[in-house]
Nucleic acid binder design. Structure first.
Lengths: 221, 221
DNA sequence: TTTCAAATTACGGCATGCCGTAAAAAGCAC
DNA sequence: GTGCTTTTTACGGCATGCCGTAATTTGAAA
Protein backbone atom coordinates (compact mmCIF):
# COMPACT_ATOMS: atom_id res chain seq x y z
CA UNK A 1 0.00 0.00 0.00
CA UNK A 2 1.01 3.65 -0.31
CA UNK A 3 3.71 4.73 2.09
CA UNK A 4 3.71 8.52 2.08
CA UNK A 5 0.50 10.42 1.47
CA UNK A 6 -0.41 14.10 1.35
CA UNK A 7 -3.92 15.33 2.05
CA UNK A 8 -4.94 18.74 0.69
CA UNK A 9 -8.34 19.72 2.03
CA UNK A 10 -9.45 23.03 3.47
CA UNK A 11 -12.43 21.84 5.48
CA UNK A 12 -11.14 20.89 8.88
CA UNK A 13 -13.64 18.13 9.47
CA UNK A 14 -13.20 16.58 6.05
CA UNK A 15 -9.44 16.71 6.46
CA UNK A 16 -9.65 14.92 9.78
CA UNK A 17 -11.86 12.25 8.29
CA UNK A 18 -9.43 11.50 5.52
CA UNK A 19 -6.62 11.27 8.04
CA UNK A 20 -8.64 8.82 10.07
CA UNK A 21 -9.46 6.73 7.01
CA UNK A 22 -5.79 6.47 6.14
CA UNK A 23 -5.06 5.45 9.70
CA UNK A 24 -7.55 2.60 9.25
CA UNK A 25 -5.52 1.47 6.26
CA UNK A 26 -2.42 1.43 8.43
CA UNK A 27 -0.72 4.16 6.42
CA UNK A 28 1.75 5.74 8.81
CA UNK A 29 3.31 8.60 6.93
CA UNK A 30 0.33 10.89 6.44
CA UNK A 31 0.76 14.62 5.97
CA UNK A 32 -2.00 17.15 5.64
CA UNK A 33 -2.41 20.79 4.64
CA UNK A 34 -5.28 23.24 4.41
CA UNK A 35 -4.05 25.29 1.46
CA UNK A 36 -3.18 24.48 -2.16
CA UNK A 37 0.07 26.40 -2.07
CA UNK A 38 1.19 24.52 1.00
CA UNK A 39 0.45 21.27 -0.77
CA UNK A 40 2.63 22.12 -3.73
CA UNK A 41 5.42 23.35 -1.48
CA UNK A 42 5.34 20.11 0.49
CA UNK A 43 5.45 18.03 -2.68
CA UNK A 44 8.45 19.97 -4.01
CA UNK A 45 10.25 19.84 -0.70
CA UNK A 46 9.74 16.08 -0.46
CA UNK A 47 11.27 15.69 -3.91
CA UNK A 48 14.28 17.82 -2.92
CA UNK A 49 14.72 15.78 0.24
CA UNK A 50 14.77 12.60 -1.83
CA UNK A 51 11.68 11.23 -0.13
CA UNK A 52 8.74 12.15 -2.36
CA UNK A 53 5.07 11.45 -1.73
CA UNK A 54 3.52 8.59 -3.60
CA UNK A 55 -0.05 9.80 -3.30
CA UNK A 56 -1.93 13.09 -3.18
CA UNK A 57 -5.53 13.23 -2.03
CA UNK A 58 -7.02 16.61 -2.79
CA UNK A 59 -10.28 18.52 -2.78
CA UNK A 60 -11.21 20.77 -5.71
CA UNK A 61 -12.57 23.88 -4.08
CA UNK A 62 -10.47 25.73 -1.54
CA UNK A 63 -12.30 28.66 -0.11
CA UNK A 64 -10.55 32.01 -0.06
CA UNK A 65 -9.68 33.50 3.26
CA UNK A 66 -7.26 36.14 4.37
CA UNK A 67 -4.27 34.05 3.22
CA UNK A 68 -3.63 34.90 -0.44
CA UNK A 69 -2.87 31.90 -2.63
CA UNK A 70 -1.16 31.43 -5.96
CA UNK A 71 -2.97 28.25 -6.87
CA UNK A 72 -6.67 28.89 -7.20
CA UNK A 73 -7.89 25.41 -6.40
CA UNK A 74 -7.59 21.69 -6.81
CA UNK A 75 -7.44 21.76 -10.58
CA UNK A 76 -4.38 23.95 -10.64
CA UNK A 77 -2.83 22.03 -7.79
CA UNK A 78 -3.22 18.78 -9.70
CA UNK A 79 -1.61 20.27 -12.80
CA UNK A 80 1.29 21.73 -10.84
CA UNK A 81 1.80 18.55 -8.86
CA UNK A 82 1.96 16.39 -11.99
CA UNK A 83 4.37 18.86 -13.54
CA UNK A 84 6.63 18.66 -10.50
CA UNK A 85 6.37 14.91 -10.08
CA UNK A 86 4.95 13.05 -13.09
CA UNK A 87 4.69 9.70 -11.31
CA UNK A 88 2.64 11.07 -8.40
CA UNK A 89 -0.71 9.29 -8.02
CA UNK A 90 -3.65 11.61 -7.50
CA UNK A 91 -7.05 10.99 -5.94
CA UNK A 92 -9.58 13.80 -6.04
CA UNK A 93 -12.16 13.90 -3.27
CA UNK A 94 -14.84 16.49 -3.76
CA UNK A 95 -18.55 17.10 -3.47
CA UNK A 96 -18.46 18.53 -6.97
CA UNK A 97 -20.72 16.46 -9.19
CA UNK A 98 -20.59 18.37 -12.47
CA UNK A 99 -19.86 15.93 -15.23
CA UNK A 100 -17.90 18.15 -17.56
CA UNK A 101 -15.54 19.13 -14.82
CA UNK A 102 -14.84 15.61 -13.63
CA UNK A 103 -14.35 14.42 -17.17
CA UNK A 104 -11.76 17.08 -17.80
CA UNK A 105 -9.85 16.06 -14.71
CA UNK A 106 -9.40 12.55 -16.06
CA UNK A 107 -8.71 13.71 -19.60
CA UNK A 108 -6.48 16.76 -19.26
CA UNK A 109 -5.12 16.43 -15.76
CA UNK A 110 -5.00 12.65 -15.87
CA UNK A 111 -5.96 12.06 -12.28
CA UNK A 112 -6.20 8.46 -11.13
CA UNK A 113 -9.37 8.46 -9.08
CA UNK A 114 -12.36 10.62 -8.29
CA UNK A 115 -14.47 10.03 -5.19
CA UNK A 116 -17.51 12.12 -4.49
CA UNK A 117 -18.18 13.30 -0.99
CA UNK A 118 -21.43 11.42 -0.57
CA UNK A 119 -22.88 8.34 1.04
CA UNK A 120 -20.19 5.75 1.83
CA UNK A 121 -17.38 8.07 0.79
CA UNK A 122 -15.08 6.64 3.45
CA UNK A 123 -15.53 3.19 2.00
CA UNK A 124 -15.05 4.41 -1.55
CA UNK A 125 -11.87 6.23 -0.74
CA UNK A 126 -10.46 2.97 0.54
CA UNK A 127 -11.50 1.24 -2.68
CA UNK A 128 -9.94 4.06 -4.64
CA UNK A 129 -6.61 3.68 -2.88
CA UNK A 130 -6.64 -0.08 -3.51
CA UNK A 131 -7.37 0.43 -7.17
CA UNK A 132 -4.92 3.24 -7.76
CA UNK A 133 -2.20 1.33 -5.95
CA UNK A 134 -2.72 -1.40 -8.51
CA UNK A 135 -2.44 1.16 -11.31
CA UNK A 136 -6.12 1.18 -12.08
CA UNK A 137 -8.39 4.17 -12.58
CA UNK A 138 -11.19 4.51 -10.02
CA UNK A 139 -14.46 6.38 -9.89
CA UNK A 140 -16.95 6.15 -7.05
CA UNK A 141 -20.37 4.85 -8.15
CA UNK A 142 -22.18 8.19 -8.25
CA UNK A 143 -19.43 9.54 -10.44
CA UNK A 144 -19.62 6.65 -12.88
CA UNK A 145 -23.33 7.25 -13.11
CA UNK A 146 -23.01 10.95 -13.78
CA UNK A 147 -20.36 10.43 -16.43
CA UNK A 148 -22.48 7.90 -18.24
CA UNK A 149 -25.64 9.98 -18.38
CA UNK A 150 -24.43 11.79 -21.43
CA UNK A 151 -27.83 12.78 -22.62
CA UNK A 152 -25.92 15.96 -22.63
CA UNK A 153 -24.95 17.79 -25.72
CA UNK A 154 -21.25 17.84 -26.57
CA UNK A 155 -20.24 21.41 -26.02
CA UNK A 156 -17.46 22.64 -28.28
CA UNK A 157 -15.05 25.43 -27.54
CA UNK A 158 -17.17 27.60 -29.76
CA UNK A 159 -20.31 26.83 -27.77
CA UNK A 160 -18.61 27.57 -24.51
CA UNK A 161 -17.31 30.92 -25.74
CA UNK A 162 -20.73 31.94 -26.95
CA UNK A 163 -22.50 30.85 -23.80
CA UNK A 164 -19.94 32.49 -21.57
CA UNK A 165 -20.42 35.75 -23.41
CA UNK A 166 -24.17 35.50 -23.03
CA UNK A 167 -23.75 34.84 -19.33
CA UNK A 168 -21.72 38.02 -19.06
CA UNK A 169 -24.57 39.99 -20.54
CA UNK A 170 -23.16 40.50 -24.01
CA UNK A 171 -25.95 40.91 -26.51
CA UNK A 172 -26.17 38.31 -29.22
CA UNK A 173 -25.37 40.67 -32.05
CA UNK A 174 -22.16 41.83 -30.38
CA UNK A 175 -20.88 38.30 -30.04
CA UNK A 176 -19.44 38.10 -33.59
CA UNK A 177 -17.06 40.95 -32.76
CA UNK A 178 -15.82 39.24 -29.62
CA UNK A 179 -15.33 35.97 -31.47
CA UNK A 180 -13.36 37.68 -34.21
CA UNK A 181 -11.11 39.43 -31.71
CA UNK A 182 -10.23 36.09 -30.22
CA UNK A 183 -9.78 34.48 -33.60
CA UNK A 184 -12.51 31.91 -33.20
CA UNK A 185 -13.40 30.29 -36.45
CA UNK A 186 -17.08 30.67 -37.18
CA UNK A 187 -17.86 34.15 -36.02
CA UNK A 188 -20.92 35.40 -37.84
CA UNK A 189 -24.14 36.22 -36.09
CA UNK A 190 -25.82 33.56 -38.19
CA UNK A 191 -23.53 30.85 -36.94
CA UNK A 192 -24.08 31.91 -33.37
CA UNK A 193 -27.83 31.89 -33.76
CA UNK A 194 -27.86 28.60 -35.59
CA UNK A 195 -25.68 26.92 -33.01
CA UNK A 196 -27.69 28.19 -30.06
CA UNK A 197 -30.84 27.04 -31.74
CA UNK A 198 -29.37 23.60 -32.26
CA UNK A 199 -28.16 23.22 -28.69
CA UNK A 200 -31.47 24.34 -27.28
CA UNK A 201 -33.37 21.84 -29.35
CA UNK A 202 -31.07 18.98 -28.40
CA UNK A 203 -31.53 19.73 -24.72
CA UNK A 204 -35.24 20.43 -25.07
CA UNK A 205 -35.11 24.07 -24.14
CA UNK A 206 -37.03 26.88 -25.72
CA UNK A 207 -35.15 29.82 -24.26
CA UNK A 208 -31.56 30.86 -23.75
CA UNK A 209 -32.30 31.48 -20.10
CA UNK A 210 -32.85 27.78 -19.54
CA UNK A 211 -29.73 26.88 -21.44
CA UNK A 212 -27.63 29.22 -19.35
CA UNK A 213 -28.94 27.87 -16.08
CA UNK A 214 -28.26 24.36 -17.35
CA UNK A 215 -24.68 25.25 -18.28
CA UNK A 216 -24.16 26.97 -14.99
CA UNK A 217 -25.37 23.96 -13.03
CA UNK A 218 -23.35 21.47 -15.05
CA UNK A 219 -20.05 23.28 -14.82
CA UNK A 220 -19.84 24.14 -18.46
CA UNK A 221 -19.30 27.81 -17.76
CA UNK B 1 -23.37 20.72 27.94
CA UNK B 2 -25.81 18.76 25.79
CA UNK B 3 -26.42 15.22 26.96
CA UNK B 4 -28.09 13.40 24.11
CA UNK B 5 -27.36 14.39 20.53
CA UNK B 6 -28.50 13.11 17.14
CA UNK B 7 -26.42 13.56 14.00
CA UNK B 8 -28.17 13.40 10.63
CA UNK B 9 -25.63 13.44 7.82
CA UNK B 10 -25.49 11.24 4.77
CA UNK B 11 -21.80 11.62 3.94
CA UNK B 12 -19.97 8.93 5.85
CA UNK B 13 -16.81 10.94 6.39
CA UNK B 14 -18.63 14.06 7.49
CA UNK B 15 -20.75 12.01 9.85
CA UNK B 16 -17.67 10.45 11.41
CA UNK B 17 -16.08 13.86 11.86
CA UNK B 18 -19.04 15.23 13.70
CA UNK B 19 -19.06 12.19 15.96
CA UNK B 20 -15.42 12.74 16.69
CA UNK B 21 -15.96 16.41 17.43
CA UNK B 22 -18.68 15.56 19.92
CA UNK B 23 -16.37 13.04 21.54
CA UNK B 24 -13.86 15.84 22.02
CA UNK B 25 -16.54 17.75 23.88
CA UNK B 26 -17.06 14.75 26.12
CA UNK B 27 -20.61 14.21 24.97
CA UNK B 28 -21.29 10.55 25.62
CA UNK B 29 -24.75 9.88 24.28
CA UNK B 30 -24.24 10.47 20.56
CA UNK B 31 -26.47 8.84 17.97
CA UNK B 32 -26.09 9.10 14.24
CA UNK B 33 -28.11 8.30 11.12
CA UNK B 34 -27.55 8.59 7.38
CA UNK B 35 -31.14 9.29 6.32
CA UNK B 36 -33.65 12.01 7.15
CA UNK B 37 -36.45 9.58 7.79
CA UNK B 38 -34.33 7.65 10.25
CA UNK B 39 -33.57 10.89 12.04
CA UNK B 40 -37.22 11.76 12.51
CA UNK B 41 -38.03 8.21 13.60
CA UNK B 42 -35.28 8.33 16.22
CA UNK B 43 -36.46 11.66 17.51
CA UNK B 44 -40.03 10.40 17.85
CA UNK B 45 -38.97 7.16 19.46
CA UNK B 46 -36.81 9.01 21.97
CA UNK B 47 -39.83 11.11 22.93
CA UNK B 48 -41.97 8.00 23.36
CA UNK B 49 -39.30 6.40 25.49
CA UNK B 50 -39.30 9.44 27.74
CA UNK B 51 -35.67 10.22 26.95
CA UNK B 52 -35.71 12.77 24.14
CA UNK B 53 -32.71 14.28 22.37
CA UNK B 54 -31.68 17.76 23.37
CA UNK B 55 -29.82 18.53 20.16
CA UNK B 56 -30.05 17.70 16.46
CA UNK B 57 -27.12 18.38 14.15
CA UNK B 58 -28.19 17.99 10.54
CA UNK B 59 -27.01 18.51 6.99
CA UNK B 60 -29.33 20.08 4.41
CA UNK B 61 -28.81 17.94 1.34
CA UNK B 62 -29.29 14.20 1.56
CA UNK B 63 -28.51 12.53 -1.70
CA UNK B 64 -31.03 10.09 -3.12
CA UNK B 65 -30.06 6.50 -3.34
CA UNK B 66 -32.05 3.30 -3.64
CA UNK B 67 -33.69 3.88 -0.25
CA UNK B 68 -36.83 5.95 -0.85
CA UNK B 69 -37.41 8.70 1.68
CA UNK B 70 -40.42 10.66 2.80
CA UNK B 71 -38.49 13.70 3.95
CA UNK B 72 -36.69 15.28 1.03
CA UNK B 73 -33.87 16.88 2.95
CA UNK B 74 -32.69 18.86 5.93
CA UNK B 75 -35.24 21.62 5.59
CA UNK B 76 -38.15 19.23 5.90
CA UNK B 77 -36.43 17.31 8.65
CA UNK B 78 -35.98 20.49 10.67
CA UNK B 79 -39.64 21.39 10.26
CA UNK B 80 -40.81 17.91 11.21
CA UNK B 81 -38.44 17.73 14.16
CA UNK B 82 -39.61 21.04 15.58
CA UNK B 83 -43.21 19.94 15.13
CA UNK B 84 -42.53 16.74 17.02
CA UNK B 85 -40.44 18.34 19.74
CA UNK B 86 -40.70 22.14 19.92
CA UNK B 87 -37.93 22.52 22.49
CA UNK B 88 -35.35 20.60 20.41
CA UNK B 89 -32.24 22.64 19.64
CA UNK B 90 -31.11 22.44 16.03
CA UNK B 91 -27.72 23.09 14.47
CA UNK B 92 -27.46 22.94 10.68
CA UNK B 93 -24.10 21.94 9.23
CA UNK B 94 -23.91 22.27 5.48
CA UNK B 95 -21.69 23.43 2.66
CA UNK B 96 -24.64 25.35 1.28
CA UNK B 97 -23.76 29.03 1.14
CA UNK B 98 -26.81 30.54 -0.53
CA UNK B 99 -27.94 33.47 1.54
CA UNK B 100 -31.66 33.34 0.89
CA UNK B 101 -31.80 29.72 1.92
CA UNK B 102 -29.90 30.16 5.15
CA UNK B 103 -31.94 33.20 6.05
CA UNK B 104 -35.15 31.26 5.63
CA UNK B 105 -33.89 28.55 7.93
CA UNK B 106 -33.50 31.04 10.74
CA UNK B 107 -36.72 32.85 9.96
CA UNK B 108 -39.23 30.14 9.11
CA UNK B 109 -37.66 27.03 10.57
CA UNK B 110 -36.16 28.87 13.53
CA UNK B 111 -32.97 26.85 13.72
CA UNK B 112 -30.48 27.83 16.41
CA UNK B 113 -27.18 27.69 14.55
CA UNK B 114 -25.77 27.38 11.06
CA UNK B 115 -22.19 26.27 10.47
CA UNK B 116 -20.79 26.10 6.99
CA UNK B 117 -18.62 23.18 6.01
CA UNK B 118 -15.50 25.22 5.39
CA UNK B 119 -12.17 26.10 6.95
CA UNK B 120 -12.21 25.55 10.72
CA UNK B 121 -15.66 24.00 10.67
CA UNK B 122 -14.72 21.63 13.50
CA UNK B 123 -13.86 24.60 15.68
CA UNK B 124 -17.00 26.48 14.70
CA UNK B 125 -19.24 23.58 15.47
CA UNK B 126 -17.84 23.55 18.96
CA UNK B 127 -18.52 27.27 19.28
CA UNK B 128 -22.01 26.70 17.95
CA UNK B 129 -22.76 24.09 20.58
CA UNK B 130 -21.48 26.37 23.33
CA UNK B 131 -23.62 29.21 22.11
CA UNK B 132 -26.78 27.21 21.52
CA UNK B 133 -26.44 25.56 24.90
CA UNK B 134 -26.54 29.04 26.37
CA UNK B 135 -29.67 29.80 24.33
CA UNK B 136 -27.88 32.01 21.88
CA UNK B 137 -28.14 31.96 18.08
CA UNK B 138 -24.91 31.12 16.29
CA UNK B 139 -23.62 31.57 12.75
CA UNK B 140 -20.14 30.65 11.61
CA UNK B 141 -18.13 33.63 10.30
CA UNK B 142 -18.56 32.92 6.58
CA UNK B 143 -22.29 32.71 7.11
CA UNK B 144 -22.45 36.01 8.95
CA UNK B 145 -20.55 37.57 6.09
CA UNK B 146 -22.83 36.17 3.43
CA UNK B 147 -25.95 37.24 5.27
CA UNK B 148 -24.64 40.76 5.68
CA UNK B 149 -23.69 41.30 2.06
CA UNK B 150 -27.21 42.26 1.22
CA UNK B 151 -26.21 44.28 -1.78
CA UNK B 152 -28.86 42.03 -3.02
CA UNK B 153 -32.24 43.17 -4.12
CA UNK B 154 -35.15 42.18 -1.91
CA UNK B 155 -37.00 39.67 -3.96
CA UNK B 156 -40.76 39.68 -3.43
CA UNK B 157 -43.07 36.76 -4.00
CA UNK B 158 -44.01 38.38 -7.27
CA UNK B 159 -40.39 38.54 -8.39
CA UNK B 160 -39.79 34.94 -7.53
CA UNK B 161 -42.86 33.81 -9.43
CA UNK B 162 -41.82 35.73 -12.51
CA UNK B 163 -38.23 34.55 -12.40
CA UNK B 164 -39.21 30.96 -11.81
CA UNK B 165 -41.47 31.07 -14.84
CA UNK B 166 -38.68 32.53 -16.95
CA UNK B 167 -36.35 29.78 -15.75
CA UNK B 168 -38.89 27.22 -16.90
CA UNK B 169 -38.81 28.67 -20.38
CA UNK B 170 -42.12 30.52 -20.29
CA UNK B 171 -42.03 33.47 -22.63
CA UNK B 172 -42.45 36.86 -21.09
CA UNK B 173 -45.76 37.59 -22.75
CA UNK B 174 -47.30 34.38 -21.43
CA UNK B 175 -46.40 35.22 -17.87
CA UNK B 176 -49.46 37.44 -17.23
CA UNK B 177 -51.74 34.44 -17.85
CA UNK B 178 -49.85 32.30 -15.38
CA UNK B 179 -49.91 35.04 -12.78
CA UNK B 180 -53.64 35.53 -13.17
CA UNK B 181 -54.29 31.80 -12.83
CA UNK B 182 -52.50 31.83 -9.51
CA UNK B 183 -54.21 35.01 -8.40
CA UNK B 184 -51.07 37.09 -8.10
CA UNK B 185 -51.88 40.75 -7.82
CA UNK B 186 -50.06 42.73 -10.48
CA UNK B 187 -50.34 40.52 -13.51
CA UNK B 188 -50.00 42.66 -16.60
CA UNK B 189 -47.17 42.28 -19.04
CA UNK B 190 -46.21 45.85 -18.32
CA UNK B 191 -45.78 45.18 -14.64
CA UNK B 192 -43.66 42.16 -15.35
CA UNK B 193 -41.43 44.06 -17.74
CA UNK B 194 -41.12 47.02 -15.43
CA UNK B 195 -40.23 44.89 -12.46
CA UNK B 196 -37.61 42.88 -14.34
CA UNK B 197 -36.10 46.07 -15.62
CA UNK B 198 -35.92 47.45 -12.12
CA UNK B 199 -34.32 44.33 -10.64
CA UNK B 200 -31.76 44.15 -13.41
CA UNK B 201 -30.73 47.73 -12.91
CA UNK B 202 -30.39 47.34 -9.14
CA UNK B 203 -28.13 44.33 -9.59
CA UNK B 204 -26.23 45.90 -12.47
CA UNK B 205 -27.31 43.43 -15.10
CA UNK B 206 -28.29 44.16 -18.65
CA UNK B 207 -29.87 40.87 -19.57
CA UNK B 208 -32.32 38.42 -18.06
CA UNK B 209 -29.83 35.63 -18.58
CA UNK B 210 -27.51 37.17 -16.02
CA UNK B 211 -30.34 37.70 -13.58
CA UNK B 212 -31.41 34.08 -13.84
CA UNK B 213 -27.93 32.76 -13.25
CA UNK B 214 -27.64 35.07 -10.26
CA UNK B 215 -30.92 33.82 -8.82
CA UNK B 216 -29.93 30.26 -9.45
CA UNK B 217 -26.64 30.67 -7.66
CA UNK B 218 -28.11 32.50 -4.69
CA UNK B 219 -30.87 30.01 -4.03
CA UNK B 220 -33.69 32.35 -4.94
CA UNK B 221 -35.18 29.88 -7.36
C1' DT C 1 -6.97 24.79 -61.97
C1' DT C 2 -11.50 23.10 -61.84
C1' DT C 3 -15.31 21.04 -59.53
C1' DC C 4 -18.13 19.76 -55.96
C1' DA C 5 -19.65 19.34 -51.16
C1' DA C 6 -19.71 21.34 -46.78
C1' DA C 7 -19.37 25.04 -43.88
C1' DT C 8 -20.10 29.83 -43.19
C1' DT C 9 -22.29 34.07 -43.90
C1' DA C 10 -25.86 37.43 -45.42
C1' DC C 11 -30.38 38.68 -45.49
C1' DG C 12 -35.40 39.15 -44.51
C1' DG C 13 -39.71 38.42 -42.20
C1' DC C 14 -41.76 37.88 -38.04
C1' DA C 15 -42.09 37.34 -32.99
C1' DT C 16 -40.49 38.86 -28.71
C1' DG C 17 -38.31 41.74 -25.49
C1' DC C 18 -37.29 46.55 -23.98
C1' DC C 19 -38.66 50.92 -22.35
C1' DG C 20 -41.00 55.15 -22.28
C1' DT C 21 -45.44 57.65 -21.95
C1' DA C 22 -50.13 58.00 -21.27
C1' DA C 23 -54.47 56.17 -19.70
C1' DA C 24 -57.06 53.66 -16.31
C1' DA C 25 -57.88 51.71 -11.87
C1' DA C 26 -57.32 51.39 -7.02
C1' DG C 27 -56.70 53.38 -2.47
C1' DC C 28 -57.22 56.93 0.69
C1' DA C 29 -58.36 61.37 3.08
C1' DC C 30 -61.86 64.54 3.48
C1' DG D 1 -69.26 61.19 -3.32
C1' DT D 2 -64.83 64.48 -4.73
C1' DG D 3 -60.22 65.14 -5.32
C1' DC D 4 -55.79 63.43 -4.86
C1' DT D 5 -51.89 60.16 -5.03
C1' DT D 6 -50.14 55.69 -6.13
C1' DT D 7 -50.33 51.55 -8.51
C1' DT D 8 -51.42 49.03 -12.43
C1' DT D 9 -52.36 48.57 -17.22
C1' DA D 10 -52.38 49.70 -22.22
C1' DC D 11 -50.09 51.07 -26.12
C1' DG D 12 -46.34 52.14 -29.48
C1' DG D 13 -41.76 52.55 -31.34
C1' DC D 14 -37.60 50.50 -31.63
C1' DA D 15 -34.02 47.00 -30.82
C1' DT D 16 -33.05 42.28 -30.46
C1' DG D 17 -33.75 37.52 -30.96
C1' DC D 18 -35.53 33.69 -33.87
C1' DC D 19 -35.39 30.95 -37.90
C1' DG D 20 -35.65 29.90 -42.63
C1' DT D 21 -33.55 30.45 -47.30
C1' DA D 22 -30.22 31.84 -50.42
C1' DA D 23 -25.61 33.43 -51.51
C1' DT D 24 -20.83 33.04 -50.56
C1' DT D 25 -16.68 31.17 -49.09
C1' DT D 26 -13.80 27.36 -47.86
C1' DG D 27 -11.48 23.09 -48.45
C1' DA D 28 -10.47 18.83 -50.47
C1' DA D 29 -10.31 15.75 -54.51
C1' DA D 30 -9.83 15.10 -59.35
Amino acid sequence: MFKKVLIAEDQEMANISVQKTLQDLAIKDVHYVYYCDDALARIKKAIRDGNPFDLLITDLIFEDDSTPQILSGGEELVAAAIAAQPDLKIVVLSSEGRSRLIENLFKSASIHAYVRKARRDAQYIKEALEAVYQHRIYQSPEVREVLQERNSHDFTTFDIHVITLLAEGVSQKEIPDYLEERGIKPSSLSSVEKRLNQIRSVLGFTKNEQLLIYCNEHGII
